[in-house]
């Protein structure tokens, strides 16, 4: 398996099992590969739109997961995760294939809201809004 496939598999596996996206040093230690090679691999994965990186080269997004706190907190399988958006928050439940509770808030007024996924069905009092046209999603993936 190529290094990029190993890195992708490890990043997702560590995130799904542990709740937090691993840092470059963690991936390097886990795979027994020099950190600089991991950094280069992450760069290639980001170019391929598999990951989004922070300015220092660490991972910002391994969609649907966020490495930094967001207003989309997902409790699932006894762990807490951050989703990048409401779509990704539901995506975490889909990726983990388990029930989940999403604690978020209204993007307009900030009122707290809870969305639940139970038994493969979603429940909640609200809607989702996609502001950016689909063809433009990757022009500013952080805003999107």
């Amino acid at each position: 398996m190529s290094l990029d496939l190993q890195v992708r598999a490890h990043v997702y596996d560590a995130t799904m099992r542990g709740g937090a996206i691993p840092r470059i040093a963690d991936v390097a230690a886990a795979l027994g590969v020099p950190a600089e090679e991991i950094r280069e691999s992450l760069g290639r994965l980001a170019t391929g739109r598999v990951l989004v990186l922070q300015g220092d080269g660490e991972i910002l997004m391994a969609n649907p997961f966020s490495a930094v706190p967001t207003p989309f907190i997902v409790a699932a399988g006894g762990r807490l995760y951050y989703g990048n958006c409401i779509w990704d928050a539901l995506g975490i439940a889909a990726m983990l294939r388990c029930d989940a509770v999403v604690d978020t808030s209204c993007g307009d007024c900030g009122t707290a809201a809870r969305v639940e996924v139970r038994g493969g069905a979603v429940r909640g009092d609200g809607i989702m809004h996609f502001a950016i046209r689909a063809r433009d999603w990757w022009k500013d993936i952080v805003f999107n």
């Binding site: 539901l90 990726m95 809607i127």
Partner: peptide, 23 residues
């Protein structure tokens, strides 16, 4: 205004998009 989805439709999208195992 962009596109508004119900939670049910958003969940279907999430399942289809993120269901396949990226590992």
């Amino acid at each position: 205004r962009g596109a508004v989805l119900s939670l049910e439709t958003g969940w279907k999208l999430a399942e289809a998009w993120y269901g396949p195992d990226r590992r």
